[in-house]
Design a protein around this nucleic acid. Structure first.
Length: 571
RNA sequence: CGGGGAGUGGCGCAGCUUGGAAGCGCGCCUGCUUUGGGAGCAGGAGGUCGCUGGUUCAAAUCCAGUCUCCCCGACCA
């Protein structure tokens, strides 16, 4: 490609509304332009990179035995009503209607569509298993789109769906797809972790996310380097504390704590460590109230509570009047003792003795509370968020915490959609059974900012080999008609003929502009041909990753120079 | 949805407090000079000041409403 003919509008100044490096660089390097919040144009170079990501994914999906299809973006509301997700997905969906007032959605995902497609065709166990995938735009009316194509409302996703007659088959495909994903992200050059994940709106039993490590990422994960345990912090488990040594159980005692409404204030007032206090949260459900208890310095993880209880109707009681009605006290003094509601306590505080809770009487707390005597009905389970210093639930080694960008997620969905959509097959005994399903997504468009976020410097992008938009740049530092330009022109043709993808910077621009653009757009190698080098009988080859080579051209046949450059490109 | 901020040539911004000729830098066009890390000189094109209404002799500027966008948070790939 000749730069002068390529639609590659680089920006000297960085757009003010971009904060993240990947967002800035994609705009500056002329890859994307914003159309409206969360919706972007891909310019030629951006699109080229996008297609490279897509191709890596497609190759690995095909290799894993998946078949590519193309499903519609416009989807009828009826299908979504059938799966009951029309309301569950809610405002997250772009909804529209046609001239007859028929309702539709722009597909945020395709479980309904694909299940509908196969339900009339896969009628025998002999047809299973089957895995289909597509690479297609998805639409989600994000609450807050941000960081360019990192979180946008229209985005390109690879989504695959598998159908099975047995859990074993589902698990086998799940493992195969896991392996395929590992190959994809390795090939793309990402530094990534696969972590246990909540399955959210998709439903299902087991799910893992693929997280590209980046400090600016929106996901937080806990990882054990010792045994390989890795989980999204929303569900990450920890190893509970050991029982405190034999301690005498002291007498329960009500103490005055006037106006002390926070853990810190109470701890300070009573001169005890904050962790000695147990926090109480009251939740309402369709079937009444319940209490959740965590340590004073811990954070209740609602995801854990709701998945432990297996219910999605949890709502934390957050108005003064309601909390008073349930406990008889205001927020600063609520506690579990004397409440006639189920009590769930975090496993980590089970070992505590003689601790402190609110007295359910304004301005008072209870000291020397003990489970076996005062709260014998409390049920213990993992309820709190993991935190710095926690130990691995499997091996006890200390957990490491990272932030990252979610680039993929795989789910064992089970029967959720096949049941809802009445999608059955007949097994060997002639029994009608719903398929077991899995689904597997990769955020193709999000992979690009993830790669950039892991590979850039102050000058611009440093592409990984799998997605680099060009193999090499040819920078000529003289105008058309000069020997310099002519030599560059020759190398451009020659390298193209040899199967490389060069960008020939033939623009009438000053050297500084050309060098800076080359760095910005991430040309992995620059071949620099200028009058100065020409005079010395040489040209320079400069690597984006660092390092420089000089190639002698004086008296050397051009073909040999091209050979030499080819060697340098291949190393 | 809560909190903060911004809408002025393609991009980045000033002007608004105190109403009175729409400016600056970059980019763009023409010509000449330049050419190894974002060149110089000269000339030029380009703007419904987000939108609607109001106040006023006069509104980018004051008032009211409205739309859009950005940042932080709760949600999600």
């Amino acid at each position: 490609m000749k730069f002068s003919e390529y639609f590659l509008p680089t920006l000297k100044e960085t757009p003010s509304d971009a904060k993240l490096a990947s967002h800035k660089l994609m705009l500056q390097a002329g890859m994307i332009r914003k159309v409206t919040a969360g919706v972007y144009d891909y310019l030629p170079m951006g699109f080229k990179v996008l297609k490279k990501v897509e191709e890596v994914v497609r190759e690995e999906m095909n290799r894993a035995g998946c078949q590519e299809v193309k499903l519609p973006i416009i989807q009828p509301a009826d299908l979504w009503r059938e799966s009951r997700r029309w309301d569950d997905y809610g405002d997250e969906m772009f909804k529209l209607s046609d001239r007859k007032d028929q309702e539709f959605a722009l597909g945020p995902t395709h479980e309904e569509i694909i299940t509908d497609m196969v339900r009339n065709e896969l009628s025998s166990y002999k047809d299973l298993p089957l895995t289909l995938y597509q690479i297609n735009d998805k639409y989600r009316d994000e609450i807050r789109p941000r960081h360019g194509v990192m979180r946008s409302r229209e985005f390109l996703m690879k989504d695959a769906y598998s159908f099975h007659g047995s859990q074993e088959s589902l698990e086998e495909t799940y493992r195969d797809l896991y392996d395929a994903y590992a190959r994809v992200f390795d090939r793309l050059g990402l530094d990534w972790y696969a972590v246990d994940a909540p399955s959210g709106l998709m439903g299902g039993s087991y799910s893992q996310e693929f997280i590209a490590v980046a400090d600016e990422g929106g996901e937080e994960i806990a990882v054990c380097d010792e045994c390989g345990y890795a989980a999204n912090v929303d569900i990450a488990a920890y190893k509970p504390s050991e029982d405190e040594a034999q301690v005498e159980l002291k007498e329960l005692e009500e103490v005055e704590t006037p106006g002390k409404e926070t853990v810190a204030a109470v701890a300070d007032y009573l001169d005890v460590p904050g962790q000695k206090i147990v926090k109480t949260f009251i939740y309402s459900t369709d079937d009444g109230y319940l209490a959740a208890l965590v340590g004073g310095n811990d954070e209740l993880e609602e995801t854990k509570l709701s998945s432990h209880l297996g219910r999605s109707d949890l709502e934390m009681v957050s108005t003064e009047s309601e909390i008073e009605q349930v406990t008889g006290a205001n927020f600063g003094s609520i506690g579990p003792i004397g409440l006639d509601i189920p009590i769930y306590a975090d496993a980590d505080i089970k070992a505590m003795k003689n601790f402190i809770v609110g007295a359910n009487r304004n301005g008072y707390h209870l000291k020397n509370v003990n489970w076996e005597r005062d709260l014998e009905d409390a049920k213990f389970t993992d309820l709190r968020r993991v935190q710095e210093g926690d130990r691995c639930p499997r091996c006890g080694d200390e957990l490491d915490f990272y932030r990252g960008i979610e680039v993929g997620q795989i789910f064992q969905l089970g029967e959720k959609y096949s049941r809802a959509l009445d999608a059955h097959y007949q097994d060997e005994d002639g029994q009608l059974k719903p398929y077991l399903m899995g689904c597997y997504g990769i955020g193709i468009s999000r992979v690009i900012p993830a790669i950039i976020q892991q590979n850039y410097d102050e000058d611009g992008v440093k592409w990984t080999e799998a997605v680099q938009p060009f193999d090499v740049g040819i920078i000529v530092l003289d105008d058309e008609g000069s020997d310099v330009f002519e030599y560059g022109s020759y190398l451009y043709d020659e390298l193209s003929d040899r199967g490389y993808d060069p960008l020939f910077d033939d623009r009438d621009e000053s050297p500084g502009v050309k060098f800076n653009d080359a760095d910005l757009i991430g040309l992995p190698v620059m071949i620099i041909i200028g009058p100065r080098g020409m005079k010395n009988g040489e040209l320079e080859v400069e690597f984006r990753a660092g390092g420089k080579e000089t190639v002698k051209i004086d008296g050397v046949p051009r073909g040999e120079v091209a050979d030499r450059i080819g060697d340098l490109l291949n190393r």
